[in-house]
Amino acid sequence: MNPPDAILTQSPGLPRSPDGDPVFPEPWNAEAFAMTVHLHAKGLFTWSEWAAALSAELHKPGRAENGSDYFDCWVAALSGLLTTKGVTDADAILALQHSWQRAAEATPHGQPIERANDPLV
């Protein structure tokens, strides 16, 4: 696949390999990145909208000095953009987040974590 140049160039501070490819410290970082690439490619938001959303999160006070919360900011930016676009709202995201956490804890070892495992679903 071609690199999603817009996302790469408009995501300041994105951890990069020496070749300029993104580097993901944890799996969910890559999933968040991939979702953003995918939604941008589908036209849900433009590169400038993404850049503004990410930049706003990155410049909020209280960030980790070592940049370890970079993808936390990324996810916050994506959540905010989806809210702005009317796809969802903060309460719905939080409710689903808690649902997934309950599902994870209720899932027996060795089985895939499904949201249907949330006792409250």
């Binding site: 969910w28 999933e31 968040a32 979702m35 939604l39 993808f71 936390d72 996810v75 994506l78 959540s79 989806l82 796809v87 969802t88 719905a92 995201i93 939080l94 689903l96 987040q97 808690h98 649902s99 997934w100 956490q101 994870a104 804890e105 899932t107 070892h109 974590i113 949201r115």
Partner: peptide, 17 residues
């Protein structure tokens, strides 16, 4: 079998989308 807040948040966004 535990999701951190961020892991669960990403799963939540995936679910919504």
């Amino acid at each position: 079998n535990r999701y951190t807040d961020m892991q669960a948040r990403v799963k939540a966004l995936e679910t919504v989308l």
